[in-house]
């Protein structure tokens, strides 16, 4: 950043909030001079309009425009109908990206939920719960770019015979006596290597929420099951897990959205090469490397389509929560 940006920086940090406050105070002063009947009708709009304008201009309008662009030719001059979707869905590399997103959807979501649940339950039974939870949650603080560097380093590969500097290959070759694996290049494992890096980042998120729900379970319920002769495993699978199911579902929806939008880790760790591409990375590639806005928008539409079930689920859940408020 050069120094000429400092006035703009101050303007954004101080000027924008100050202008907003003046706007609210000024508008309210004007409204109070209107007839009593009009005041409550007008006032709410004064408060919501700045937000609504931004949301309309940068979220709603672009969504509609993207839907339109997905029906246009590469340079956006001709209407081509669903041709972009046709070419996208018959392009083998896009189909691989879709397959990879399905891997992400299943394995990333599943593993984060399972690890989060196991860690929450285990940590609940030890006196050092706090520190453990802090350490597991820590990766949530850092960027996926940093996480990508961390895991590239974990997965790094040297040819057989040379000393392995990557942690995983060092363990793999010394403890398990196997020949080293190029985790990020080998087609059999590379998608799962990327997914595991994402699992590492997000497990803390699932663990913290699961843990909070776990502590909300009345201990009498668990004791009652134990008194009736249930083993610890039975208590876990027959009592704890069913009681946690609503919480796990909510966490799951968040993870599903993330799995569909996965971008940063793939961009940093493999660049989408070696059959590890995902839809969000591909959409970016179509937009910048190929300058093909039509297919890029079509991929974005496919992403939106995939999100719709989650979106409807969220809306239903929200309406249910509002109803019981």
């Amino acid at each position: 950043m050069s120094l000429d940006w400092i006035p703009y920086l101050i303007g954004a940090v101080v000027g924008v909030p100050a202008a907003l406050i003046l706007y609210i105070i000024g508008a309210d002063w004007l409204i109070r001079r209107l007839p009593d009947r009009l005041q409550p009708r007008l006032r709410p709009w004064v408060w919501v309009v700045p937000a609504l304008i931004l949301v309309a201009a940068l979220l709603i309008y672009p969504m509609i425009a993207t839907a339109w662009i997905s029906l246009l030719s590469k340079d956006g001059t001709r209407f081509v109908g669903l041709a972009n979707f046709g070419s996208v869905l018959t392009d083998n590399s896009v189909l691989i990206a879709i397959r990879n997103n399905i891997y992400w959807l299943v394995f990333y979501t599943g593993l984060v939920l399972v690890f989060g649940l196991i860690l929450a339950v285990l940590a609940d039974r030890v006196p050092y719960e706090g520190p453990v939870k802090s350490l597991i949650f820590m990766p949530m603080a850092i960027s996926f770019v940093a996480a990508g560097v961390i895991w590239r380093f974990m997965f790094s590969y040297q040819p057989p015979g040379q000393p392995q500097t990557g942690t995983l290959n060092a363990i793999w070759t010394s403890v398990f006596q196997q020949s080293p694996v190029a985790w990020l290049i080998d087609h059999r494992v590379n998608n799962f290597a990327l997914i595991f890096a994402a699992v590492w980042v997000w497990t803390g998120f699932a663990m913290v929420i699961t843990s909070a729900a776990l502590k909300g379970i009345p201990p009498e319920l668990l004791e009652a099951a134990r008194v009736d002769g249930a083993t610890e495993l039975q208590v876990f699978f027959r009592v704890t897990v069913p009681l946690l199911a609503p919480t796990l579902t909510v966490i799951g929806t968040t993870l599903v959205i993330f799995a569909l939008k996965a971008f940063d880790l793939v961009y940093v760790m493999t660049g989408g090469f070696y059959d590890t591409d995902v839809m969000a990375r591909r959409m970016y590639g179509e937009m910048f490397n190929n300058q093909n806005f039509g297919t890029s928008a079509a991929i974005a539409m496919l992403l939106l389509l995939a999100v719709v079930p989650v979106l409807i689920f969220n809306l239903r859940r929200f309406q249910f929560q509002e109803a019981i408020r």
């Binding site: 969504m63 939008k261 959409m283 970016y284 939106l304 999100v307």
Partner: peptide, 8 residues
């Protein structure tokens, strides 16, 4: 909604 819907 994925941000991808707004980028272009």
């Amino acid at each position: 909604v994925p941000l991808q819907m707004t980028l272009i």
